[in-house]
């Protein structure tokens, strides 16, 4: 019972931990070059607002963890990390990272075709290829030319 309660509270604990990391990072911010004298000085420092925000994230995370532990708040997730979800995520994020290194020309048709293949579960290959070609021309030639965008 306690094990499942702890599992529910994990989300809140993770948020609280993120808050703690943010707090540590905030404390590492340098002091203002021009120091304001008096007790107000502390509130004018560049680290003040980030530290307060990090503290609030930690408090809310802890509140969430307590509520989830008590069962007054459910730990909701729309499905776990399924094979399909992982593939779509890795493909999309990988595409963006790859484009930042080698540009749009080569990764774009590969990404569109593979993604269409994955989400259509390998059906309608001809349709997938036709859509890939259409999207490639539309997104990298037609729209950029119409709107004077730099892509290739």
């Amino acid at each position: 019972m306690t094990g499942s309660k702890m599992q529910n509270a994990m989300e809140g604990i993770v948020v609280a931990l993120v808050g703690v990391i943010f707090m540590i990072l905030s404390l590492g911010i340098q002091k203002n070059p021009v120091v304001t004298q008096g007790p107000i000085g502390m509130f004018v420092e560049a680290k003040f607002i980030p530290f307060i925000l990090a503290l609030l994230i930690t408090i809310q995370g802890a509140r969430l963890a307590v509520a989830q532990y008590k069962g007054t708040e459910a730990s909701i997730s729309d499905g776990g990390l399924t094979k399909r979800a992982m593939t779509v995520m890795l493909l999309t994020l990988g595409y963006l990272v790859l484009v930042s290194f080698i540009g749009f020309s080569i990764p774009t048709p590969i990404y569109v075709a593979v993604l269409l293949y994955v989400v259509n579960e390998g059906h309608a290959l001809i349709k997938i290829l036709a859509i890939t070609a259409f999207y490639y021309v539309l997104a990298l030639f037609v729209i950029p030319i119409l709107l004077n965008l730099q892509v290739l």
Binding site: L96, Y111, A139, P144, V151
Partner: peptide, 14 residues
């Protein structure tokens, strides 16, 4: 959705 993803990338880059 694949088109939306590519358009987002083009938009962000620009």
């Amino acid at each position: 959705m694949p088109l939306v993803a590519v358009l987002c990338a083009v938009g962000a880059y620009n």
